[in-house]
Simulated scan of single mutants.
Amino acid sequence: MAQEPLRAERPRRPHKDDGGPDGQNKTTGRGRGPGPAYAAIDLGTNNCRMLIARKTPGGFRIIDAFSRIVRLGEGLNASGALSDAASERVMEALKVCAEKMERREVVKARCIATQACRTATNGPQLMARIRDELKLDFDIITPEEEARLAVLGCLDLMDDRFDAALVVDIGGGSTELCWVDLAEWRARGGYASGGRPPVRTWSSAPVGVVTLSERFPEPGENRAEWYEGMKAYAADLLKVPKGAKRLRPLFEEGRAHLVGTSGTITSVASVHLRLPRYERARVDGLWMSSAETRAACDRLSGMDLGGRAGEPSIGRERAELVLAGCAILEAVMDAWPADRLRVGDRGLREGLLLNLMRKPRRRRRKPRKANREAAE
Rank of each mutant, 00 (worst) to 15 (best):
V322A: 09
A331L: 08
R294V: 13
S290T: 07
E320V: 09
G351S: 08
V322Q: 08
D334A: 14
L348P: 13
E292P: 05
V283T: 12
V322S: 11
R346T: 13
G306I: 00
E279T: 00
D284E: 07
R299K: 15
R280N: 12
P312D: 07
A309C: 02
E350P: 14
G307T: 00
R294I: 11
I328W: 10
R299W: 10
G307P: 04
L329W: 01
A331K: 04
R340E: 06
A296S: 15
I314A: 03
G315A: 02
P276N: 08
R346M: 02
A319G: 10
A281C: 10
E320S: 13
A331Q: 05
T293D: 01
R299G: 15
R308A: 00
G325V: 04
R349D: 07
A331M: 07
L323M: 08
D298L: 10
R318C: 09
C326S: 06
L323I: 14
V332G: 03
C297H: 05
S301D: 15
G347C: 13
I314H: 04
G315E: 02
A331E: 04
M333Y: 04
W287P: 13
R282W: 13
D284K: 11
S290F: 03
V332Q: 00
R277Y: 05
L341S: 11
A331T: 01
W287I: 14
M288Q: 09
L323A: 07
E320W: 03
A296W: 15
L305E: 12
R316H: 08
G325L: 06
M333H: 08
S289R: 14
V332D: 03
G307E: 00
R282I: 00
A327H: 07
Y278H: 11
D284R: 09
G285V: 03
G347H: 14
D298W: 02
T293K: 06
R349P: 09
R308W: 05
R280K: 14
L286R: 05
G325R: 10
W287E: 15
E317P: 00
L286Y: 03
S290Y: 06
V332P: 01
P312T: 04
D334N: 13
E279G: 01
I328S: 05
D345G: 06
A291N: 06
A291V: 15
L286G: 10
M303H: 11
D304N: 15
G344K: 05
A281Q: 15
